[in-house]
Design a protein around this nucleic acid. Structure first.
Lengths: 110, 110
DNA sequence: TTTATATATTGCAATATTACGATAAATAAT
DNA sequence: ATTATTTATCGTAATATTGCAATATATAAA
């Protein structure tokens, strides 16, 4: 036990859950926030923006990357990270659909 | 260690992360999916829709409720759960903002 | 080649999550 | 009052996550 039973859910459910899970930590939201504020992608100073040690930040970046939310390129000795628009669009669509379905639904709920 | 350092992040970052985290499990995505398909709110059969035992489902429902994504009313011996539109709107707005900012941003990234 | 800089990985301790059997609580039906 | 039904809670085992010090790796600069 302790393991999520992914086999029993649809690919779509699993993939949305994976994206949501990756965003389920304030440090990772802060990273996304930061990536949106910088024009250039050389993001070596994310560590300085966060109240966490470098290995911890590196780990959070890795999780965002594994989930497909950000991509990274080696840029000399620094690394350029940036948001993967497609994955954001994916999650955005998910919530847009829910919002639309809720508008259609019977309002006499709870 | 092992605990998230919430104190060091903004309220907005923490609250988005909380909502995202609650959606970070396929069973909870499946619950949201199901709540969208039923017209009536009497949702006692969520357990039958999921490949999980009743206590596990109850726990997932509790987490969605704690995060504010669903609300529940006692309806006789059954319980009526439904989606909280405001919280969905919250998360939806978050991704809409990101999408908009990405459109504005320099495309020459990574 | 040596040194500095930037990032990743390893290893580990503390805590959280996932899942479920057993059981409780609370109402409905008989 | 007793029994069935529905949902919640407790306890617990297995696993995952969070965070960091120490260390490795890899390129840039001297």
């Amino acid at each position: 036990m302790g393991t999520t039973k992914t086999e029993h859910f649809t690919d779509r459910q699993n993939s949305i859950a994976t994206l949501a899970k990756a965003l389920g930590h304030p440090a990772r939201i802060a990273i996304i926030d930061y990536l949106l504020t910088v024009d250039s992608c050389i993001c070596g100073d994310i560590v300085n923006q966060l109240p966490l040690a470098q290995p911890t930040v590196s780990q959070h970046l890795k999780e965002l990357k594994n989930a497909g939310l950000i991509k990274g390129n080696i840029e000399g000795t620094a690394i350029c990270y940036c948001i993967d628009e497609a994955s954001i669009a994916n999650v955005h669509d998910f919530f847009t659909n829910i919002s639309n379905q809720l508008k259609i639904k019977n309002k006499s709920c709870c």
